[in-house]
Design a protein around this nucleic acid. Structure first.
Length: 296
DNA sequence: CCACAGGACGGCT
DNA sequence: AGCCGTCCTGTG
């Protein structure tokens, strides 16, 4: 993708030649919790210490308008965050050729991009996701940020960054409970406290093979197979995982394996059938199954 | 009031 | 190894 980055007259950046980027599908497909729609093809997100505004008035292919980033920062950080170096056209082609329903799922979720998000925020978010629904996860993450994060601002807009691990590691469990994480509060505190001790960070995880990285994350309380895979995938550390929640299980049973398939069977099948695009297939299937309530 | 949704964990076999 | 009750919160 030959992206061109220019400064617009109104202080926004204009990124041209962007392909396969649908803001709705990317931000609503369940991978992130702090992006909100503020207009047609327009979103506001809180990432690290910034409030970023993104729009693509022309749709999935065309120009991206970015507010509150310099050109240098876009090249250094946001290119990677939005995975703009990956050719999703190729991925969609390969997966579409596998079978007709996958083709339909890929078409349904066209323009999804797998974001490479902050590791710690992703870890906490997906600990919260256990036995929980997306609107609730968003509410709890938001509440944790307003309670424990630092104030950030852009013009008249104000918000809060997500706190760093030592802050939540030291949090009082009764105070954290006000953020409505329920039985997961002790996991948030416990996992935050163990990161240093077990030397768990994106650098160490990236160097390990995927299976070992997953097992290491599972040493943290509140993290099982599914949450570990989500953390590895959505923080951009691994792309050969297949997070299997109820929706993915349902659609895999419906499409390929029949009722009663075990999680291990699903993972084995997915690895051999989807090959190198395993994680992308998971995202298209999850979004398709959930939005269409497949299997319910 | 009750039923239900949604993964990790621990106790059981 | 696999099965299953329990954990919290919000919604219908």
């Amino acid at each position: 993708m030959d992206l061109r980055i220019e400064n617009g007259t109104d202080g926004k950046l204009i990124i041209s030649n962007v392909r396969d980027f649908n803001l709705d599908h990317t931000f609503l497909c369940g991978q992130c919790f702090r992006w909100k729609k503020i207009g047609d093809n327009k979103y506001r997100g809180v990432v690290k210490d910034k409030i970023l505004y993104l729009s693509n008035p022309g749709g999935d292919d065309g120009s991206l308008l970015v507010e509150n980033s310099t050109r240098e920062e876009f090249e250094e950080y946001w290119m990677e965050y939005f995975d703009l170096g990956t050719d999703y056209g190729k991925i969609k082609d390969v997966l579409s050729q596998k079978d007709p329903i996958l083709k339909e799922a890929v078409e349904f979720g066209r323009g999804i991009r797998l974001l490479k998000q902050d590791f710690y925020e992703t870890m906490v978010s997906f600990i919260i996701s256990a036995n929980n629904r997306i609107p609730m996860i968003m509410r709890v993450v938001e509440k944790i940020a307003t309670t424990y994060g630092k104030p950030i601002e852009y013009l008249e807009d104000r918000d809060f960054s997500f706190p760093e691990a030592p802050v939540l590691a030291e949090a009082d469990i009764n105070e954290l409970a006000l953020c409505k994480g329920g039985f997961r509060n002790k996991y948030i505190i416990g996992s935050s406290a163990l990161l240093d001790e077990l030397n768990i960070n994106p650098g160490t995880l990236r160097l390990m093979d995927t299976g070992a990285a997953r097992e290491l994350l599972k040493k943290l309380p509140g993290i099982g197979n599914k949450v570990a895979d989500c953390i590895l995938l959505y923080s951009g550390i691994k792309r050969d995982v297949f997070p299997t929640d109820v929706w993915v299980k349902r659609i895999m049973e419906e499409l390929y394996l029949g009722r009663g398939a075990s999680f291990l069977q699903i993972e084995d099948f997915a690895r051999s059938y989807f090959g190198k695009y395993l994680s992308y297939a998971q995202q298209y299937l999850f979004y398709y199954a959930r939005e269409n309530r497949i299997g319910t």
